[in-house]
């Protein structure tokens, strides 16, 4: 597993160096901030994972790996571990800058929590599609997902107004209230928020990994 992750990091060494330098430059010039954390975590970890999948597809690295004595589950799980590893690297860098610049770390924990959850959801959707349909279709599905999310976030209210959405807003509110209460509860401490959302992310990734292993095996 370790060697597969190192291989993916090595294959992406130029991209990693470029993005980390870019991140460091912004951190130095503009200082560490919560939006920077979201940007850094997102662009770096998602980018490395996507590019490692791209190289597997372009160089047919998957065929090479299948000829080696490696379990299918190890090959699949290594992509998840890669994503999580890069996530940790970027979080550590951002945290280091925040400490060095003497900022209040508590705000960062909330940013980390939501970026870890967001990236985990993206991985959890992307990787099973990649292992089932390959890089091109997985990339397409990500674009579609992105458009849906953007469309939903900008146009949801307008859609309700235009179409006279049949579900009353108060009913939707009643449905979302327990979730909002839960987030409010755990948000009282940003460390608890970080731990809770990290645990939720791990559960989501575990379910996704199980699905990916099934797809990878069936893909034989």
């Amino acid at each position: 597993m370790r060697h597969l992750v190192i291989k993916d990091l090595y294959v992406n060494r130029k991209y990693m160096s470029f993005v980390l330098l870019f991140l460091a430059a912004i951190l130095v010039l503009k200082g560490s901030s919560a939006p920077m954390v979201l940007f850094g975590v997102g662009i770096t970890s998602y980018g490395v994972l996507i590019r490692s999948c791209y190289y597997d597809d372009k160089d047919r690295g998957d065929i090479f790996l299948r000829t080696l004595p490696i379990k299918a589950s190890t090959i699949v799980l290594s992509k998840y571990i890669l994503g999580i590893s890069v996530l940790f690297i970027v979080v550590a860098i951002c945290l280091l800058f925040a400490i060095l610049s003497g900022q209040n770390l508590d705000i960062y924990f909330a940013s980390f929590a939501f970026s870890i959850l967001a990236i985990s959801i993206v991985y959890a959707i992307y990787l099973p599609i990649f292992f089932k349909y390959g890089y091109v279709k997985a990339a397409t599905s990500q674009s579609v997902l992105f458009i849906i999310i953007m469309g939903a976030s900008f146009g949801f209210k307008e859609l309700i107004n235009i179409t006279n959405f049949p579900v009353p807003v108060n009913q939707l509110h009643r449905f979302l209230t327990p979730l909002i209460n839960f987030i409010n509860e755990i948000s009282r401490s940003n460390i608890i928020l970080l731990l809770t959302l990290s645990a939720v992310s791990l559960v989501i990734l575990a379910v996704s990994a199980k699905l990916s292993i099934k797809f990878y095996d069936a893909g034989k």
Partner: peptide, 26 residues
């Protein structure tokens, strides 16, 4: 016994595939 078998089997495909950007040694 896929893993022990592959451990004792050498395979060469028609168009050997590796990662293009890696060196032979790596």
């Amino acid at each position: 016994y896929e893993i022990p078998i592959k451990n004792k089997t050498g395979y060469v495909g028609e168009q050997p595939v590796f990662y293009d950007d890696l060196t032979v040694g790596w």
